[in-house]
């Protein structure tokens, strides 16, 4: 396929994905805004004022980066897993599979769609946070890089989930039983310094901790983890999951008989 044609195919998938999540904005953009808004209000504003400081910052300021990252992770994952599985379920994925679009363009298109929703929700949540606190971003480039890499990692994970999924239950099991605990225990609401040493050691195995803390470092300039290690980890996860997803696509897992 010509390079120009590949780009058009990628753009087509991306536009279709953006059109999908903006068409159903009441299901995709509003709920995370309401949920995270409630977190801001209850944990940040009401309870946070009694907690005082966390990691050297007001509790509200401390949890804002974590909550933004939580919204990005959940929505990037949910967009790709639900959209790709829905395409499988309705069999409209066959539209792409019978066309000359290469596997890596299919993967990039859906992942870019997931990243677009992750970033869109992240921006909405960031805008909402201005009602509760004034954010000053310490490292703009790092902040953007972490958001993009994190949304890519979870879009890829959502894609793999959708490839294996046979029912709608299969795309809700991982978010409920794996993703949510990882996020809540990933330093969104607390600094791991509060944990005993064993708890800190266990937390260090949680990849979300690195993403949340690197993002927090980008905004506040403070982190519980080594930023270089975190960025390397994000790079390795991105490349590894991309490789796995591409291998499964080539193998036809969940798609070709």
């Amino acid at each position: 396929m010509l390079t120009n044609h590949k780009y058009i195919a990628f753009e087509t998938i991306l536009i279709k994905e953006i059109r999908r999540f903006t068409r159903i904005w009441l299901q995709t953009l509003v709920p995370p805004a309401i949920t995270i808004g409630l977190y801001f209000l209850i944990f940040g504003n009401l309870i946070g004022s009694r907690i005082g400081q966390m990691g050297g910052f007001d509790y509200m300021d401390f949890i804002v980066p974590g909550l933004i990252m939580m919204a990005v992770i959940q929505n990037a994952y949910a967009n790709v897993s639900s959209s790709f599985f829905s395409n499988k379920f309705q069999r409209c994925i066959e539209e792409i599979l019978v066309s000359p679009v290469p596997n890596y363009i299919i993967l990039l298109g859906f992942v870019a769609g997931g990243m677009a929703r992750g970033v869109a929700v992240g921006l909405i949540v960031t805008a909402m946070s201005f009602f509760f606190t004034s954010l000053h971003i310490e490292h703009v480039f790092l902040t953007l890089l972490v958001v993009l890499l994190t949304s890519m990692v979870f879009s890829l994970a959502g894609f793999i989930n959708a490839l294996y999924a046979n029912t709608f239950d299969d795309i809700s099991i991982i978010p409920t039983f794996v993703l949510t605990p990882l996020i809540y225990l990933g330093g969104v609401f607390y600094s791991i310094e509060l944990l005993p040493s064993f708890g800190q050691w266990i937390s260090a195995l949680n990849p979300v901790l690195y993403m949340v803390n690197t993002f927090r470092y980008g905004i506040l300039g403070t982190s519980d983890v080594n930023i270089v290690v975190a960025l390397l980890m994000l790079g390795v996860f991105s490349a590894g999951l991309f490789g796995v997803a591409l291998y499964l696509l080539r193998k036809g897992t969940g798609l070709r008989q």
């Binding site: 396929m1 120009n4 058009i8 195919a9 753009e11 998938i13 536009i15 279709k16």
Partner: peptide, 14 residues
């Protein structure tokens, strides 16, 4: 209309 135009995109037409 979108279904047909999207399919064209998969073949490099836009």
């Amino acid at each position: 209309g979108d279904i047909v135009i999207t399919q064209a995109g998969y073949y490099g037409l836009r």
